[in-house]
Amino acid sequence: MTVSKSEVGLNMRRMRSAFLTAVLSIGMVMFLLGGFLMIILHAKAFVKVLKERIEIQVFINDEMNAETKRELRLWIDKQPYTKSARYISKQEAAEIFTKRTGEDLSILDNNPLDASINIRLKSEYVEASKIAKIKQELAGKEGIVDVSFDEKTINRVNSNINKLWLIGSGLTLIIVLVSLFLTFNTIKLSIYAKRFVIRSMQLIGATDSFIRKPFLIQGILQGLIASLIAGILVMILTYSIINRIPELSIIQSTSDIILTLIVLLVFGTTLGLSGSLWAISKYLNSNLDNLYT
């Protein structure tokens, strides 16, 4: 029972270092999780940008008068699937054709190309089945000659995105499980050092809730500090990457960064709290003899 000065110093250092170790390891796990979350959110934004660059071409009857063309264009703009629409005249179509193929259409008497309205769809509509429905709807519209889209490309893009999401979800699950395991073990070790104090408190007649309280507060603090540090580091890293690669600015989103910070703070704090609750309950329900093993 005797407590020597060197033991006290050692105990105090151990307790302080146990707190810092817990903050550091939870922080590292949160940094990993935050970084991964940031990659996922940016990948999601990238996929959205990619999908919204896919166009469907709506070829229109060139003999329509300007008013009817304007009305059709307005109608397309109002459709829920339309992200943006662009009118391509016969002349522009010929120029694009020449640019792509190198063949000059001006040698022909008549320009054989139709004018079109090129629609960029909202990302959630970029699926072959949904586009087929849109095509059907457009085809029935007066003044529309044909509707064309690259079904193979759309299917390939969607299939690759699905594979990526599957891999991403698997990795997220692994990271969450690893973070749970590491955090719980770190907290358990930091409380392990105080197991005899816990037992002493029980034998004095302290209630479980009284004993639990300081440990839960400590767990919340550890989780909060760790996730705050991790969040700041993830934010700095994200901005520095975006600054170095200007092309990424199109997918940069402040709301994603704020979301990542909130997720980290909530997850880290919950992890600290639940880890402490689990570890303290383990020692509260332990037999005295088991504390020595």
Partner: peptide, 24 residues
């Protein structure tokens, strides 16, 4: 009941070798 144990122990005084004092 487990919840009644603290109240039993408040009526007792338990002393043993490894009963720790808070070093700080």
């Amino acid at each position: 009941k487990k919840s009644e144990l603290p109240y039993l122990r408040r009526k007792l005084g338990i002393v043993f070798q490894d009963f720790q004092l808070l070093p700080d």
